[in-house]
Simulated scan of single mutants.
Amino acid sequence: MDEQNFVSEIIENVPDSIKKETLNGAISLMKVLFKDPLIEIGNIFTDKIKSKRYSNMISIIADANLKLSKSGLNPCEPLLKVIMPLLENGSLEEDLKLKDKWSSLLKNALDEGKLTDSHIAYINILKELTPTEGLVLDFLYKEFDGNGFEVFYAAHLLEDKHKITSEVFYIHLDNFQRMKLIESTLDREIYKYLENSEYEVNEYREGYFSNLEVENKNKFNIERTEMAFTYLCKGFMRACAS
């Protein structure tokens, strides 16, 4: 199949929800993503992607192409180990806000000045985020300017502004910690306390533990603990920003 017939076949099978003019931009970017689009794209579409995944991937590529054009950037040749899992996993996404993150991640992965091996980690993070988790992460990051936040206060804000209960929030918080997006400052506080303690642990063990129990009964309450965004999270948020 020659390129002209291949492109014509793609256009004929495009869902009505995708505008024809955006498809042309997506196809032009596909030629950058794949050295041999007739073979590579054909294999992906034939074997792995059904109509919905096809539509999702085209939308993400078209949006990434638009973002590249608005930024005045010419796409660089992508790393295969980045671009293939990015498109593969992005094609599964149906949430509009997370789709926007996928297209931004693709756009930045094609920007020579921003491409790093960390994009592989960002792909793994993004594919595991649910729409609600994406909303929570965006809200917290914007609300606290990427700085630390108190768990109890953040839970109150989310329940007040987005009707997300503290129980659900704590589950999301655990998942963010699992993905190394946030970290508790509790260990730092304990270390600082021990470092500044007037007691020598080895010499005054009994007195030390007695003091720890009395002085820190409320200080180390987990709900009052401050959380911090990791460097990985900050890089991820930048890579998924338009």
Rank of each mutant, 00 (worst) to 15 (best):
K48F: 14
Y191M: 15
V14F: 00
R178E: 15
T22C: 00
I60H: 01
S242G: 06
K101E: 05
E143L: 06
L80A: 13
S51A: 09
T130M: 01
I222R: 09
D36C: 05
P78K: 07
K217T: 14
I171A: 05
D100N: 14
A154L: 02
K142Q: 12
F152H: 14
K35C: 07
S103T: 04
M84N: 06
I120K: 10
Y204N: 15
T22P: 02
A155L: 08
L212E: 01
E128I: 00
E94R: 09
I39A: 10
S184T: 13
K161N: 11
E189H: 14
K101S: 05
L79D: 12
S242F: 05
L73V: 12
H172C: 06
K163T: 14
P15S: 03
Y208M: 12
F209N: 02
I182F: 04
D117S: 10
I190G: 08
V136R: 01
C240T: 15
N24K: 11
H172E: 01
K114H: 07
E112S: 15
P78E: 03
L115A: 06
I120S: 09
L232Y: 07
I83R: 05
E77K: 15
N147M: 11
E215P: 02
F176H: 03
G134Y: 01
V32P: 04
L157W: 00
L73I: 14
L73N: 09
L23S: 08
L212C: 01
E77Q: 14
L212V: 13
L38T: 08
A239I: 05
K50S: 06
S69D: 12
I83S: 11
I182T: 14
H172P: 00
L110R: 04
P75A: 03
N13K: 13
N196T: 11
E183L: 05
Q177A: 10
R205Y: 15
